[in-house]
Computed example of a mutant assay.
Amino acid sequence: MEKLNLSWKSVLAVCFDGASEMYSRISGVQSRCKGINTKILYVHCFERCLNLVLQDLKNSLMFDFFGTVQLLYNFIEGTRHAILEQISKIVATKLRILKSLSRTRWACRAEAVAALKLFPMSSNIALSQNFEFFIGIELMHPILQMIVKFSKLLQDPKLDILTAMGEVRHLR
């Protein structure tokens, strides 16, 4: 703040993730900020909250689904990618590339599911696969698209707290 020649008295709130170094009232960054300006409010980062909720969802409900998505990626990228590239050149079509999952970046999950959703599968292949997995693709695709849109909105530097709170309610 000093380097930018800004006054701490004009700061209304500080926003951090849930790390104790940040939010601790005794020795965290929040307490240091309040030491300078007692009126500063601490706001837990909505983006981090969203990520924590999604992590719980992944760990409890969707492990098999996302585990299968990652296994498909590992199998194809590890052993079959070059073969698929050759086939796509022969049939003159664009190769759709599966995406690896990320623990914290849900946009990667959205991209991976979107790639699987768009992947052309014959009815014979679909019938031989796990029905729940295909239902998972159909259910998770729109949900993940909403999450990515919401996540990008939360990263907008012009976003104000009231709009963010309204968007949280809307996403729920």
Rank of each mutant, 00 (worst) to 15 (best):
V91C: 08
D64C: 11
F119Q: 00
G35V: 14
K117V: 02
S24N: 08
Q55P: 06
E21D: 03
Q55C: 12
K58M: 12
C33M: 14
R103M: 03
I87K: 08
Q86N: 10
L54N: 07
G35M: 13
S60Y: 15
M121D: 03
I26C: 11
F16M: 15
I90H: 15
E47R: 06
R109A: 03
L52A: 07
L41R: 13
E77R: 05
L6E: 06
I40K: 08
R105F: 05
C45V: 05
Q30I: 07
D64S: 15
S24V: 07
E47A: 14
H44S: 04
A115E: 01
T68F: 14
V29K: 07
T104A: 01
I97H: 12
L95H: 01
K9N: 15
D17W: 09
A107P: 09
F65K: 06
S102P: 05
M1A: 06
E2C: 08
K9E: 12
V43K: 08
Q55D: 09
G35D: 14
S24F: 11
F63I: 12
S27I: 03
L12F: 08
W8C: 12
L41H: 10
G67W: 15
L12W: 11
L61V: 06
L54K: 03
C49F: 08
L41E: 02
V53H: 10
L72I: 09
A82W: 02
L52R: 04
T104L: 01
S100D: 14
A92Q: 07
N124I: 00
L4W: 07
F66W: 09
V113K: 00
R80Q: 11
T79P: 06
S100I: 09
